[in-house]
């Protein structure tokens, strides 16, 4: 079993027993291989050196509230992506290319952490890391280490969310059924479920009011 640890008050355990990977035998072989690769332990990260990798890990763990094991190795997926130059196909004219922006922002996080924690970002406490990140988000369009804060924030969250929500363990906690070829769906519509889908046990838990 590999459920990600997510406290109940943060939305954990809403779909008890739901496991997308159980549907693997119903997926086409190409898709199955693509999803399976995300589960395998990474052999080589590329792009980041060990220190940057630790910084990136701390960053994405805070952005995604990954505070325990098992966890999705988002920083490895990002490093592999940057090594392969797999960008989104655009960058802002006031930003360096993605790889350079990642590299510079890892150093920037260390600079900020040393100011408030007298430690590198990865060595700071979780609360200090959150404080550093909260300050970046609050800067909005103002520059952060010579890059518009909102653009570096967008870069981090885009890469982090793309890696995290590509992983079947993340699908389990949001009730998403994952790949659907060649099986498809037979029960579409409000309140309708496939036999393998699991109902939300806390449907009234509106996150907006939480």
């Amino acid at each position: 079993m590999s459920a990600l640890p997510l406290p109940e008050q943060d939305g954990g355990g809403r779909y008890p027993g739901f496991r997308t990977l159980d549907q693997g035998p119903h997926w086409d072989a190409v898709t199955r291989r693509t999803v399976q690769r995300r589960l395998d332990p990474p052999r080589r990260v590329g792009f980041f050196d060990d220190h940057e990798l630790a910084t990136c890990r701390a960053l994405v763990d805070r952005l995604l509230a990954q505070d325990g094991e098992p966890r999705i190795q988002v920083e490895v997926m990002i490093g592999q992506r940057l090594a392969a130059e797999e960008t989104d196909g655009w960058h802002y004219d006031d930003m360096p290319i993605d790889a350079e922006a990642w590299r510079r922002s890892m150093a920037g996080l260390d600079d900020d952490a040393r100011l408030i924690a007298n430690a590198d970002f990865a060595e700071a406490t979780v609360a200090q890391q959150r404080a550093v990140l909260g300050a970046v988000q609050d800067l909005r369009m103002s520059p952060w280490h010579a890059m518009p804060a909102t653009h570096i924030w967008g870069l981090w969250t885009r890469y982090a969310a793309t890696a995290f929500y590509a992983h079947p363990w993340a699908w389990d906690e949001i009730g998403f059924s994952g790949p659907a070829y060649p099986r498809g769906y037979k029960n579409i519509g409000i309140g309708k479920r496939e036999p393998f889908e699991v109902a939300d046990t806390r449907a009234d838990e509106d996150p907006v009011g939480a």
Partner: peptide, 29 residues
């Protein structure tokens, strides 16, 4: 939107950390 694109929608509201995970767990609604 599928989960990644939906996460971008939620993150664009400024949600991150536990807040983001809580919103995402509500995806079917």
């Amino acid at each position: 939107p599928l989960p990644i694109t939906w996460a971008e929608h939620v993150a664009a509201q400024g949600h991150w950390g536990a807040d983001l995970r809580r919103y995402m767990s509500d995806y079917p609604h």
